[in-house]
């Protein structure tokens, strides 16, 4: 393929330039590359999201203790001892006032008078291995620590993790669809070009040109066009993503759509892949047409 791109000027000239198939190919490649950048960003971002949620959040849960004044500390101790004897829990720790304040700060601001408010005591539970039996734990807590509510993130996050995983799969599927339709469009354009150049092909054959030579003239042209278009489309797509407004981590899903670090290198694979798709599509179209027109 390197040799193909280095090219044979004369072989290129042997086939006259064809306006509309050229524009169609460049435009298709550009549009598809643009879409591919977003599909890639989507599947990377959802992948990150799914990983993070699944990884971090499923492994911790919180116990909330809202007891009447005076019983808070006793209940907290009771809860901790229950947790310590529950299989599947590797650690349980009561959050300090500062930690609680830090947790609430994004919602209520730094000046929240935690001391004077009936803020529940939070206990962070770190799961071990397969995790614990939430139903059993709830039953025990109900008996021994009446003010405790087990906030089990896993349960409500599970469908989200699932959805994020599916979104990632959809992104990958979209990438495959984009590659497939690029190939189909370029095949059509190449076939149109071959049909328009029937006379040229006949003359080339009469002077002893082999199929591979004739095919190469078309293949090279379409590969270069696809590469050009895809470069432009990818650049535009990456710029679009780069210009997405920056937001802090709390922004969540939408602003997480960008590429991170080395992730910026991934969309750079799109133009060479587009060229590869064009190469394969044109080559098979050309050889098929040439075989049929013998």
């Amino acid at each position: 393929m390197a040799a193909l791109l280095a090219g044979d000027k004369m072989a290129d000239r042997a086939v006259p330039p064809t306006g509309f198939t050229a524009r169609l190919t460049v435009f298709t490649a550009a549009a598809m590359a643009f879409l591919a950048v977003f599909a890639l960003a989507l599947s990377l971002a959802t992948g990150r999201l799914a990983d993070r949620w699944a990884e971090e959040l499923a492994r911790t849960s919180t116990l909330r203790i809202s007891a009447p004044e005076g019983q808070q500390e006793a209940q907290t101790r009771a809860a901790l001892s229950v947790l310590e004897t529950t299989p599947g829990i590797s650690a349980a720790r009561a959050l300090s006032e500062e930690e609680t304040r830090a947790l609430l700060e994004p919602w209520f601001g730094p000046d929240l008078p935690v001391e004077t408010l009936p803020i529940p005591q939070l206990i962070e539970i770190v799961e071990a291995g397969e995790g614990y039996d939430a139903t059993g734990l709830r039953a025990r807590l109900q008996a021994e620590v009446p003010g405790a509510v087990l906030d089990d993130h896993t349960r409500w996050r599970e469908p989200l993790v699932d959805a994020a995983g599916r979104l990632r799969a959809l992104g990958v599927f979209a990438l495959l669809l984009i590659a497939g339709s690029t190939g189909a469009m370029i095949t059509l354009a190449a076939q149109a070009a071959l049909a328009a150049n029937e006379q040229v092909i006949r003359v080339l054959r009469l002077v002893g040109a082999q199929d591979s030579y004739i095919a190469r003239a078309f293949v090279r042209r379409f590969t270069l066009r696809a590469l050009t278009g895809a470069l432009a489309g990818t650049a535009a797509g990456m710029l679009g993503i780069f210009l997405l407004p920056e937001a802090d981590a709390a922004g969540g899903f939408l602003t997480g759509l960008g590429f991170r670090g080395a992730g910026w290198l991934l969309p750079l694979l799109i133009p060479p892949l587009a060229a590869l798709v064009a190469f394969a599509a044109t080559r098979s179209a050309a050889l098929r047409v040439l075989r049929a027109a013998s």
Binding site: R205, L206, V207, G208, A209, Q210, D211, S212, L290, S294
Partner: peptide, 13 residues
Amino acid sequence: RDKVALARRRIGV
């Protein structure tokens, strides 16, 4: 066809 093409290079038409 490739062999025919090679033969044609030896025949001027």
